[in-house]
């Protein structure tokens, strides 16, 4: 078959034909792959969250001053942990880190989601700070490298990256506690979680259920520890828009375990006295009894500061 002549009609026809065929093929492929693409995105985000946080059954995500925050709840709708996604300005450009917190504010782990640091230097931040961060006491103040008077060892020859990383994690800490975001000034954050936090309302809230049951359907009031709801709502900070109405209620049982959202100090005293033994048992089941020990430590340190 001879090649088509280059007449205007032929040119237009062939180009139109090609474009039509192309359009059909691509729309078909796009329809096929749209589902898996969306799924892959949610899965990778959830995988990062699961990797840094204690286990949860249900995830509630909101944003606080532009930071994405994910809070996990167990089957009894108590807070099991918080994950915050923070962005820092590293040496080679911006990087994103997901930091996981226990309800008492201690860090359980972190994962650097994306960075453009130099391999072998700033890139070491993906692993270098794991032990330093998990050993950090949330009531001792913001984390700083040793060069700035803190206790954290910077990465050798990558001080700028280390500083940027710790700054991002400090911001994540303040977001996890529901406070105004740490801006590097010495007066902000750090010890605020152990005194009265200044609650900041969340911008937007999305309930992202892993479990099938919605927290709305399960009222907490009928449970034996009824006195607590009176104490909690006035203390529980910021996020209480309609969609996450359950969140303060969900936080109620966890006031026994120092919820990062609720002010630990004022609630703990009544919870300690009012709380019947079974609640303690379930709480310990939820977080391996560590929170009870920490709770006592926090309470005592607060008393010292008083």
């Amino acid at each position: 078959m001879k090649k088509l002549e280059s007449t205007p009609l032929n040119m237009v026809l062939s180009l139109t034909g090609i474009c039509l065929a192309v359009g059909c093929i691509l729309s078909g492929v796009q329809l096929l792959t749209a589902g898996p693409i969306a799924q892959a995105e949610t899965e990778s985000r959830q995988a990062a969250i699961r990797a840094v946080m204690p286990p949860y059954r249900q995830l509630v995500s909101d944003t606080l001053q532009g930071f994405a925050r994910y809070r996990g709840y167990d089957q009894q709708h108590r807070l099991t942990g918080t994950a915050v996604q923070a962005v820092g300005n590293g040496f080679g450009g911006p990087f994103t880190v997901m930091v996981g917190f226990r309800p008492d504010g201690a860090i359980t782990g972190y994962q650097v989601l994306q960075h453009t640091e130099t391999p072998g230097l700033g890139a070491k931040m993906t692993q270098a700070f794991q032990t330093a961060l998990t050993a950090w006491n949330p009531c001792s103040g913001p984390m700083k490298v040793k060069q700035d008077g803190g206790e954290v060892d910077a990465i050798t020859a990558a001080t700028i990256s280390s500083r940027a990383f710790l700054a991002a994690v400090n911001q994540a800490c303040s977001v996890a506690r529901g406070e105004a975001v740490y801006d590097g000034s010495t007066s902000a954050t750090g010890t605020a979680g152990c005194e009265q936090p200044q609650p900041v309302p969340a911008d937007t809230v999305v309930v992202d259920s892993v479990a099938t049951e919605q927290p709305v359907a399960v009222p907490v009031a009928p449970r034996p520890r009824t006195p607590k709801p009176a104490a909690v709502p006035e203390e529980s900070p910021g996020p209480a828009p309609e969609v996450v109405e359950p969140a303060p209620q969900v936080d109620t049982p966890t006031a026994a375990t120092p919820s990062v959202e609720a002010a630990p100090a004022p609630i703990e005293t009544p919870s300690e006295t009012v709380q019947p033994a079974p609640a303690d048992a379930t709480d310990e089941k939820a977080d391996n009894g560590k929170s009870k020990r920490k709770r006592k430590r926090n309470r005592n340190s607060h008393k010292d500061e008083q």
């Binding site: 001879k2 090649k3 088509l4 002549e5 062939s14 180009l15 034909g17």
Partner: peptide, 15 residues
């Protein structure tokens, strides 16, 4: 043989 000579570059590019 279906693509005229004058428009072969854009046609190839689209494919």
């Amino acid at each position: 043989n279906l693509i005229p000579e004058k428009v072969h570059i854009p046609a190839y590019i689209v494919i």
